[in-house]
Design a protein around this nucleic acid. Structure first.
Lengths: 127, 127, 127, 127
DNA sequence: GTGGTCTAGACCACC
DNA sequence: GTGGTCTAGACCACA
């Protein structure tokens, strides 16, 4: 697993798990991989995963059944969705709109720019 | 001045200055506030501003006239615009689209969500 | 059965059994539920109950008649009472008094606070 | 510094700091010892203190000024008091009353028992 | 100097 | 087997 530099690894793993919840790959109530398992899969130290799980548990997304493992809480989907939506609306979106205004980019241009850039970076990789 | 936790202060100050350039508040060639001045205005340690100016200078957005002060370079606008546009396309936009997909938000919804949230947070402040 | 997070499950089960003894629900000499039975009732792993019974046996509160089952010892009541009283005086009470001092709560306030909180949490459940 | 076995060290340190707040030894807004400082004072690993501070920050009791240190938040006293009071009322007190009922101890007996036990254990130490 | 993160490895209680 | 905690030590970004 590759990680970005500008964000803590434990947070990136948490993000991935949130995506698993939102995409429906992980169902509420389901058991998630053990700390050691995730650590091996992601090639990180178990302690790092401990932090990830601690964060998710605190948010109410997962819960610990002692001696058994971690499970998605029943409201995992709702909580995750609410969490992501809130930060999206209060943080990402305002920032986006400010940048768009400064660069004179309209909402209608977004799809075009996105597609163009994806194609370009895709071509780059292919080379 | 309030700063976000998830980004270095020096970078946030640099961002603000970039916005000044892009919005036209600061014109190419113009003198910008001294390190000491900015430090006082923003309530941060002068060392932090040193770092901001170092970063901007490295990017070619400002230049230092020794003993006189810092000035926007003649290409400040173009450089800043290119810089912002690049990171917007390669970093912000892809990230946005991924979140939007997970949350089932379409491009058409953006304006509505943005307005709604701005109104809501505005009302909150008013209370 | 619901368990608290901050205490081992085996200990919580032991506590419940001690309460049964002290309240008179269980009489000295009486047979107590089998490990398997308790495990099923409490929805825990039988190994956990084994530990509970081992602990209680070590304290002399119960004894094992091989092939037959577990029985309260004849002194079960006295032993349990002494045990509880000791930990109450040496651990719970001092802790309580320290907290009460920090929160400026007097002994005379206890009953009022307790009743108020019980009513409040009761009302909450009723909703 | 000596720590009890039945509670995590990082939590015990957090408790001590809460007591400092409640007792008025630490005033809201005040700077608290740095992580390294506390680690040395308490004779624990800095990482352990990191956890303590992380916990307190999450609760809103302290806040971090980047590169400078940790400070008690302005509401440190209120938050701490509320926190302690809540766990006292919802956890300690009900537990206490149940034990008292089982042991036939009345509220009026508490002070006597407490004093008696303190004297006894004090004498023990003196020997 | 400050805190933040990560690794490596250990020990423990618990299920 | 599970998670929880702690240590020791390292590196980093930041003020």
């Amino acid at each position: 697993m590759e990680f970005r530099d500008n964000q803590a690894i434990y947070a990136q793993i948490a993000d991935l798990m949130c995506e698993n919840v939102l995409s429906g790959a992980w169902k509420p109530g389901e058991r998630i991989p053990s700390i050691r398992e995730t650590a091996e899969t992601s090639q990180v130290n178990p302690n790092t995963v401990v932090r990830t799980y601690g964060y998710l548990e605190e948010k109410g997304i997962i819960r610990n059944q002692r001696g058994v493992g971690f499970f998605l809480s029943d409201d995992a989907y709702e909580i995750t969705r609410k969490l992501k939506k809130e930060t999206f609306e209060s943080r990402e979106l305002p920032r986006m709109f400010r940048i768009m205004e400064l660069l004179s980019i309209g909402i209608d241009d977004l799809q075009v720019i996105y597609d163009a850039h994806r194609d370009a970076s895709g071509k780059e990789k292919a080379l």
